[in-house]
Nucleic acid binder design. Sequence first.
DNA 1: AAACATCGCAACCGCCCCCAA
DNA 2: GTTGGGGGCGGTTGCGATGTT
Length: 227
Amino acid sequence: MRKPCCDKKETHKGAWTKQEDQKLIHYIHTHGEGSWRTLPMAAGLHRCGKSCRLRWINYLRPDIKRGNFAQDEEDLIIKLHALLGNRWSLIAGRLPGRTDNEVKNYWNSHIKRKLIRIGIDPNNHRLNQTLPRPQNQSMSNLTTSSESTNDASKPLKAFTDNDRVSVNASCLEDDNSSSNELNLNLDLTIAIPCAFSLFEGKKGQEKELKVAKESESDQLPTLLLFR
DNA sequence: AAACATCGCAACCGCCCCCAA
DNA sequence: GTTGGGGGCGGTTGCGATGTT
């Protein structure tokens, strides 16, 4: 039986206080990251090591970019999700200053609903045949800031000229196929010098390469990647 | 103005992988 | 080759903020 990572009776939970943040920042500035299990005691924090790690990585790290996602970032998330699935850490790794948690939250709260609303299954990035879809509805009509509702079950909203172009990818019906598969004309341009550099991680390199191969071979939808 | 609904995000939980012993 | 600890990841939850009725 594995020991719990920390004594739950002794650890604080919930929102972090400014004092706790300061202690964590100060400790990491002087000692560096790592040894998360022993860090809380050394830093004088009554927190689980995992909690400290999460707080640092998702919130306190100085290189974190906060605020709204830019249009190109959103585009890239969609493209990478089509390629990698829910591998948020890999996706976040291609978005400088963004964390996996942030990307995951943004996907679940914005992008996923947006895709559903226009009749695209966010799981496989294919047109969902069960959902009604307006004629000639293009992904270019997706909105970001002007969403008035996020309820996917509501009727599709009529888009206006003022609506922001969200995905500069074309959504095309497959000419010679009866399946309504989605072709995304994708341009992986943000911080990706080469598609193969997606998988240049250190520790999990082998795994990531495997993931890439799997993605290429099986569930990848009709996704066209252009360099 | 109050009650209720919805959204967005920080944080937690539990599982899995890696690696050293 | 096996085992156990540490770290990382993805899914889920909780709660404050905001919007709607």
